[in-house]
């Protein structure tokens, strides 16, 4: 129902069309179509099992779709690439459950994410240049972990880990950020700060945010896509979408 416009392919940053995938007969995604423009920030909502995480898995190469088109930047077929190649194209991902490297310091976590050559040889003989050190300092400042840079990431609180992960996304400097439930497990204050941070990031990046927290979505104030049973149910500003009869039905139950 939300088929992309003709010509959307070339102008879009991310283009999904007719994507389906099933696990042991269960169709997690059915005929999903979605377009993200360069510089756009998009919020994705949907009840549990709507296919939000699976969609992210498809975009980042963790899961291969059975059918459908997944294009990046108008010309790169993501279904043909693996996770590392997709990450190097400029797609960064923050996981639902914050995943940082527990046995590395916070600084090293950022260093590992920092946009730089990823080859074996280049990492073996790596020397951090002054500009890169400064970039790490900046990011640590943004995520408010500058004082804790030598602490092991495993010793951080849940909210701090969420922020560290966002910091790692920043260090990666991707063209498109996939952010899965950034506000989960955060206090109200932290949630509000996270929204501000994401909005700042969205100024020069495309962002897809998956979130349950409606307050958070409202704060972001961006176009919303509602997923249900693996396909797009509605799309538009939050107010319009939340007035949609079918969306209400899906969320509240018949």
């Amino acid at each position: 129902m939300n088929a992309p416009n003709p010509g959307a392919l070339t102008s879009s940053l991310l283009y999904l069309d007719g994507v389906s995938v099933s696990f042991d007969g269960f169709k997690a995604i059915r005929g999903l179509s979605l377009t993200i423009e360069p510089g756009e920030m998009r919020a994705i909502i949907g009840p549990n099992g709507a296919g939000k995480t699976t969609m992210m898995d498809i975009i980042t190469g963790k899961t291969k779709p059975d059918v459908g088109t997944v294009m990046f930047g108008g010309s790169v077929d993501l279904t043909k690439l693996d996770e590392a190649a997709i990450a190097n194209l400029g797609i960064g991902r923050k996981f639902q459950k914050p995943t940082v490297f527990d046995f590395h310091t916070i600084e090293d976590n950022i260093l590992l994410a920092l946009k730089a050559p990823r080859s074996v040889a280049r990492t073996l003989f790596w020397q951090t240049a002054a500009a890169q050190a400064k970039r790490i300092d900046d990011i640590l400042g943004i995520i408010k972990l500058g004082d804790a840079r030598d602490r092991l990431a495993g010793s951080l609180s849940h909210g701090q880990k969420q922020w560290l992960e966002i910091g790692m996304l920043l260090a990666q400097d991707p063209k498109l950020l996939l952010v899965d439930e950034p506000a989960a497990g955060m206090t109200d204050g932290e949630t509000a700060e996270t929204a501000v941070l994401l909005k700042a990031i969205a100024k020069d990046h495309s962002v897809i945010v998956v979130e349950h927290d409606m307050g958070f979505i409202r704060e972001l104030g961006v176009k919303v896509t509602v997923l249900h049973e693996g396909s797009v149910l509605a799309e538009g500003p939050l107010d319009v979408v939340s007035a949609n009869e079918r969306v209400v039905e899906v969320y509240l139950g018949r």
């Binding site: 980042t60 963790k62 693996d82 996770e83 590392a84 990450a87 190097n88 960064g92 991902r93 996981f95 995943t99 940082v100 490297f101 527990d102 046995f103 590395h104 590992l112 994410a113 990823r118 074996v120 790692m168 990666q172």
Partner: peptide, 13 residues
């Protein structure tokens, strides 16, 4: 410690 996370950072594990 987190193999798939490393992959999503763009390293060819």
């Amino acid at each position: 410690d987190a193999e798939s996370r490393t992959r999503f950072l763009g390293y060819r594990v």
